[in-house]
Simulated assay, not measured.
Amino acid sequence: MSSVKQFQVTFDCADPERVARFWCEVLGYVVPSPPKGFATWDDFNRSQSPEDQGSWFACSDPSGVGPRLYFQRVPEGKVAKNRLHLDVRVGTGLVGEERLATLEAECVRLVALGAVRVQLLYDGTDSCIVMRDIEGNEFCLD
């Protein structure tokens, strides 16, 4: 049995480029170069049929370690809680008030990008903040 070498995480969304650029800011990811033969992503989009223009976008970890994130346009909006979500790990190794302060600072930064704070889960030692991205997809600051 061979092992998995790479994987990507795919998001269904209404505005792929907007959501991708949000996650680039959250994670420090970058927008990859446009497809071969195109100087810019705008050039690539103009080459597509009208219904396919802007139908997908992607971003990647500049170090090559994290998974590629792929965003695809779908006609329906989000109607229920995600079955899968990302945990943005900003407080790894921290506990108590130090961890909480780190999570709160990152929450402030992400709210300025358009995220929405939903709920703080804190038991005095461990904590996370449940949030929503710019299209309502849940994720956690952990």
Rank of each mutant, 00 (worst) to 15 (best):
L120D: 01
Y122P: 00
K36M: 14
V118C: 14
L27M: 09
P50S: 08
P62S: 10
G28V: 14
G37K: 04
F7D: 00
R132H: 14
G37L: 06
G96N: 13
W23M: 06
D52L: 11
R89H: 08
T92I: 04
P32A: 04
Q119R: 11
E98M: 11
S3A: 12
L113W: 02
E17P: 10
A58Y: 03
E76V: 05
K36P: 14
S33W: 02
L27K: 01
V26P: 00
T10K: 07
A112Y: 10
D43H: 06
D61E: 05
Y29C: 03
F11W: 05
Q8K: 08
Q48V: 11
F22N: 02
V88K: 01
V31M: 13
C24D: 07
P50F: 07
F57N: 10
V74C: 14
L120G: 04
F11G: 02
A101M: 01
V130L: 07
F139C: 15
A20Y: 07
T10R: 14
A39T: 11
V31E: 13
D126M: 13
F22A: 05
V4T: 08
V95M: 03
F44V: 02
V88H: 02
Y122R: 04
R68K: 14
D42Y: 01
E106D: 15
A105V: 06
L27P: 05
P16I: 05
C59Q: 01
T125F: 07
Q6N: 13
E98S: 08
V19I: 11
T102L: 07
S63H: 11
F44G: 00
R89A: 09
G54L: 08
L103V: 05
A101C: 02
L86G: 06
S127V: 04
G124Y: 09
I129T: 05
D43I: 03
D61P: 00
L121G: 01
E135D: 11
K36C: 08
F44A: 03
C140H: 00
V88S: 00
Q119N: 13
A115P: 05
L69C: 02
V65R: 14
C128S: 07
L84D: 04
S2H: 12
V90N: 05
Q53Y: 09
F38N: 00
P62G: 10
K36V: 14
G93L: 12
R117G: 00
D15P: 04
D133K: 12
D123S: 10
G136Q: 13
R68E: 15
T40M: 07
F71M: 09
V90M: 06
T40P: 01
G136M: 07
T40C: 03
V31T: 14
A112S: 11
W56Q: 06
G66Q: 10
Q119I: 05
R117P: 00
D52T: 06
P62H: 12
N82L: 01
Q119Y: 06
Q8G: 12
K78T: 09
P67M: 04
V30G: 03
V88E: 00
A14S: 12
L110D: 00
L84F: 11
S47C: 10
I134N: 14
D52I: 03
W23Q: 04
R73N: 06
A39N: 07
F44E: 01
D52K: 14
V116R: 11
S49P: 12
C59S: 08
Q6C: 08
G54A: 10
R132M: 12
